[in-house]
């Protein structure tokens, strides 16, 4: 029996090495640009990244984001940005980028010993 897995939702599908995954040029016209979508859940909250989608332009991206990511009152405001326009820190830089904050414990209020009988501090 070929390798089947039920994991992946509706299940029982071949997922063995015979299933190709490498990219080839698509027969159909290449997809529209990729946009990342951010939704403000309600007033008072930040916009939060919820996923991505393809759209031909910015305006259509907002419309598509509304249909794909807010069918049940999940948001009151949507931001979209082309994925290609995002600049991110590299995961390889993790140590040099974030390590310096690790040894600066004096930046946290708990670093400072204050007698218990000093009020409101």
């Amino acid at each position: 029996m070929t390798e089947l897995t039920a994991e992946g939702g509706h299940g029982a599908v071949p997922t063995g090495p015979e299933v190709p995954v490498a990219d080839r040029p698509a027969v159909s016209r290449r997809d529209w640009p990729l946009y990342e979508v951010f939704v403000r859940g309600k007033r008072g909250l930040n916009h939060v990244h919820v996923g991505s989608l393809h759209a031909p332009d910015d305006e259509m991206a907002v419309h598509a984001a509304r249909d794909v990511y807010t069918r049940r009152n999940e948001g009151v405001s949507i931001w979209v940005v082309q994925a290609a326009d995002i600049t991110a820190s590299s995961p390889d830089e993790k140590d040099p980028m974030f390590a310096p904050s690790g040894d600066k414990v004096y930046r946290h209020p708990t670093f400072y010993e204050i007698p218990d009988d000093v009020p409101h501090i």
Partner: peptide
């Protein structure tokens, strides 16, 4: 969208489905 974060391409995946090289649930 999740598959594309792994470097896959949606149009390409759709083509593979239509050519029956990738499957869907029976």
């Amino acid at each position: 969208s999740a598959a594309e974060t792994l470097g896959a391409d949606r149009a390409d995946l759709t083509d593979k489905l239509i050519e029956r090289r990738q499957k869907y649930s029976s």
